[in-house]
Amino acid sequence: MKVYPYIIEFLQIAIFLGIAPAFTGWVRMLKCWTQGRTSAGLFQPYRDIMKLFSKDVILADNASWIFRFTPYLIFGTAVLAGGIVPMLSIDLPITSTADVIVLVALFAIARFFTALAGMDIGTAFGGMGSSREMTIASLAEPAMLMAIFTVSLASKSTSLSQMVHVIYSGQSVLRPSLVFALLAFILIALAETGRIPVDNPATHLELTMIHEAMILEYSGRHLALIEWANMMKLFLFTALGIATFFPWGIAASGDIGFIPAALLIMMLKLGIAGAGLVLLETGLAKMRIFRLTEFLGSAFLLATLGMLSYFILE
């Protein structure tokens, strides 16, 4: 039994837990700069989380166990998902536990319980957020799977490490099907992580909020866990995009010597991806919720085009 892959696995999860808030901080910082504001710095998310952990929990009178259990579950699924996506090395022991369909389902289970928690207290906001979130998710999920299927057609596998391995060892030319899949993936990632133009993570305006509406009643360590898990989700989608479409620089074998270089390259790629996200968010305005069908519909169309071009061109 090889030991190194297990060490790398633990290392990856630890780095993932540690860096995720910094990535969010980086995105916020760049956003402040592009909008001409002074930023709170790269490490503000850490301070926020620490502050929330040290506070007491305030619960509504009729909050049930679902409300209290949900933050832990969201955190748990996020950590597990972080162990599955190949970030530093392709050779990870947990990846065979779950393929990319399971990964999508892990996000779905977190969403399911968040939506339930939104309805638990019985305020209008919570229900509104849950309803909108589930609507968007039901449109985003087919597009997401189509995008993933296009990649898995090329790699003849749905196992993440196998997919990354095939793309990694193939020619470095982007295939047309993958370009379409990438475009679709970017649109879906914006929707799934609740960024502009689908949702605005910074707003608490009742008419526009979606994800924030569901977690409005949370406080203390529960909120800290949810916020942290959310940062991990943003990080994870970025890392997933990088791993499936631009895997160059990832450690191909389970040798620990490659890890520092892989880590450095990953951080560089994340920095660029974060800058791209900020440019998108600054350039776009939030959409009306009923315009989202067009947005997600075009994501679906792009993914389908990718699949067609795979059959026709490749």
């Binding site: 939506a115 309805m119 019985g122 087919p142 189509m146």
Partner: peptide, 29 residues
């Protein structure tokens, strides 16, 4: 493969439906 997309749509809508069923029946006031 387009059928797979419909199946994914079904799964996601089913989740929405059961958030509604459970949330409205058992949660809130």
């Amino acid at each position: 493969p387009l059928g797979a997309a419909l199946l994914a749509l079904t799964g996601a809508l089913a989740a929405a439906c059961f958030v509604k069923a459970f949330g409205v029946t058992f949660l809130g006031h």
